[in-house]
Design a protein around this nucleic acid. Structure first.
Lengths: 147, 147
DNA sequence: TTACTTGCAAAGGCTTTGCACCGAT
DNA sequence: ATCGGTGCAAAGCCTTTGCAAGTAA
């Protein structure tokens, strides 16, 4: 409940009306780390919110991306996937299980950022730097860990 | 002409029949650096090869990717795009023009590779590491250069 | 010759959109 | 009360696929 008012705040902070579909979709994304598709989200939320249509989920996701509250993640798979983690981080994508796992390493991101800060890049304003590591889990059930 | 026999060799080296659509599509990709979509490729080649269908272009692209002769590049834009540059490299994607430009820097790739070689990654076999820099060109007509 | 590939056109999956109604501010 | 958001269903875009005919090896 306190959570929901926090979600509402986030929405109005970026100038969006705190409508029911927006609150539900954003909350779902902020409390899951599985990078769901629009359809995944619809499936999950419709149990408690049967009136929210799939079309609205798509529209809400577009608006949230546009507002910078969530981001789209593109992988090989068919559908676009969504992520409410807006801190800098990379994605580990498993081609076997189709799972996406966030990862962040301060040292690595330090290196990459420093590289682009030092280099002269002509005719381009950098928005974001995306790092994606593709491969396969050995044990599909287990998480990947970077030590 | 000597080019075409080189293309045919590449195809048979990976065990693919050197059919006309495959030769034409692969040649187009190897001589362009604009990361075209399936439809772009079809448009370009159909002037000289009116019988090659769009469906076949899609099938040929799938086969070439599967064989490791080309790679798919996913960006925000609607369609998948293709790249015959199989050397390690990153992509600079301009949201304004939708253009993709390859880039490679030995130092940066050295850092990233060394990072992943040194770190212990549990439960994952890395296939490829993708680096994509999103942003906007200042002059949409001009190339981006990294010095 | 034989198994694979293609052209064609239809089907499929994911996403967007028009419209009338509804609701947050 | 107003303007923007939503549900619904239809349309749209990109891609895949079944089948009969064609072709590289």
């Amino acid at each position: 409940m306190g959570e929901i008012s926090h979600i509402k705040e986030q929405l109005s902070e970026v100038g969006l009306k705190a409508t029911h579909p927006r609150i539900v979709v954003l909350q779902k994304l902020m409390t899951s780390h599985d990078h769901p598709t629009a359809e995944n989200i619809h499936e999950t939320i419709k149990e408690d919110n049967p009136s929210i249509s799939l079309g609205s989920v798509y529209r809400v996701l577009d608006v949230l991306v546009e507002a910078g509250l969530i981001q789209r993640v593109s992988v090989r798979s068919g559908s676009k996937r969504y992520d409410a983690n807006m801190n800098p981080h990379g994605h580990i994508y498993c081609l076997k299980t189709n799972r996406i796992q966030d990862f962040y390493d301060e040292e690595l991101y330090g290196l990459i950022n420093e590289f682009f800060r030092k280099k002269k890049i002509r005719n381009f304003r950098i928005n974001e730097i995306k790092l994606q590591v593709n491969g396969e889990r050995i044990d599909p059930e287990d998480d990947v860990t970077i030590i």
